[in-house]
């Protein structure tokens, strides 16, 4: 297990190294004077001088790369060309919103998806099964952003059950410690702030949760059907165990293995979906930051974003692999 972690971390370092090389080459490959290309329309003589100083475009290439690598290692991704704010600072302000939303969506999907998939498989061909299979198909084909728009229109604008946008009511004077708003309220004992943040999370979480929900339901159902026809379940029945014990210990536990692998693969889709959902509900997460960076070709932000997401993504997958080893003894040993 430890070797797995070490090996994966080593691989991560290698990937990041390669990625940094690519990103370095990328900016150098922009047409024309790199400083001018970086600044684009905002190029002023003073700006160009500043950029040249930071990136050392007048130095030999290998030295430029070492400087760049040194900056990355210290967590210095430079400042946004648009706002002038250091990239890292903005990330730590905004990323919690994205994570909060993704986690809420994931929890929703797991809490609903696993029982639904299980029940559908147990009553195969029944009305619940048909509804679940049909629903998961819908979940796959209806784009998250469209679902988000629909939910916003129906439940927020028309019925007024939920707020239409943002993370928290502006009238609430909440203290933000971690920028995870729900958590912040709990830490500072401002219960109303937590509650309000939670209410703001409902619609975005449902919209975003639709992707992993559809997939979790499908995989759980298929996997439970597989396990139900396994010989060892018959052995458990022959032992005279109660139905509940068989379901929990011999069916569900085995069936969750494939589900947990799929969860890891969902991290990327969840991130894309979170960015889209944030756009619909005007949540100041990583999504709108990225959106602005792309439309204005803000290279420092884009570079930082790519490296940052690569790390998060790799770490998530590592966690999934480890948890997989914890539930499946066959993986643990090999």
């Amino acid at each position: 297990m430890l070797t797995l972690v070490v090996r994966r971390l080593a691989l991560l370092v290698l990937v990041l190294f390669g990625l940094s090389l690519l990103l370095f080459a990328w900016v150098r490959a922009l047409p024309g004077d790199p400083a001018r290309a970086l600044l684009g329309e905002k190029a002023t003589p003073a700006g160009i001088a500043a950029v040249n100083e930071r990136y050392g475009f007048d130095q030999p290439v290998w030295q430029q790369y070492l400087t760049y690598l040194g900056q990355i290692v210290r967590g210095d991704f430079g400042a946004s060309i648009n706002t002038g704010e250091p990239v890292v600072t903005t990330f730590f302000e905004r990323f919690p919103a994205t994570i909060e939303l993704s986690l809420a969506a994931l929890v929703l999907a797991i809490v609903l998806g696993i029982p639904l998939g299980y029940l559908a498989a147990r009553r195969r061909g029944g009305w619940l099964d048909n509804a679940v299979v049909g629903g998961s198909l819908l979940g796959v084909v209806v784009p998250v952003f469209f679902l988000a728009v629909l939910l916003k229109y129906l439940l927020a604008i028309q019925l007024g059950l939920f707020p239409t946008s943002g993370r928290q009511d502006a009238r609430i004077d909440a203290t933000h410690v971690t920028n995870f708003y729900v958590l912040d309220g709990l830490l500072t004992r401002e219960w109303d702030a937590s509650w309000d943040a939670l209410v703001h999370l409902v619609l975005p979480a449902i919209a975003l949760g639709s992707i992993p929900l559809a997939i979790i339901v499908r995989i759980t159902r298929a996997s439970v059907l597989d396990v139900l026809s396994d010989d060892h379940v018959r052995t458990a029945e022959a032992k005279g165990l109660s139905r509940a014990v068989i379901s929990r210990r011999h069916v569900l536990r085995n069936a969750l293995l494939p589900v947990s692998t799929t969860l890891g693969l969902q991290a990327g889709a969840l991130l894309s979906g979170a960015v889209l959902t944030e756009t619909v509900f005007s949540i100041n997460g990583i999504g709108s930051y990225l959106f602005d960076a792309v439309t204005q070709l803000d290279y420092p932000v884009l570079q930082g974003f790519i490296l940052f997401i690569a790390v998060v993504y790799a770490l998530v997958n590592l966690v999934v692999d480890i948890s997989y080893g914890v539930i499946d003894p066959r993986v643990r040993v090999s």
Binding site: A269, L290, L297, I309, A310, Y313, A314, N317
Partner: peptide, 16 residues
């Protein structure tokens, strides 16, 4: 292992 969104952002940043 690269999330598709990242890929898309990189390509768009490269090609406009």
């Amino acid at each position: 292992s690269i999330p598709s969104l990242l890929l898309a952002v990189s390509v768009a940043a490269l090609l406009g």
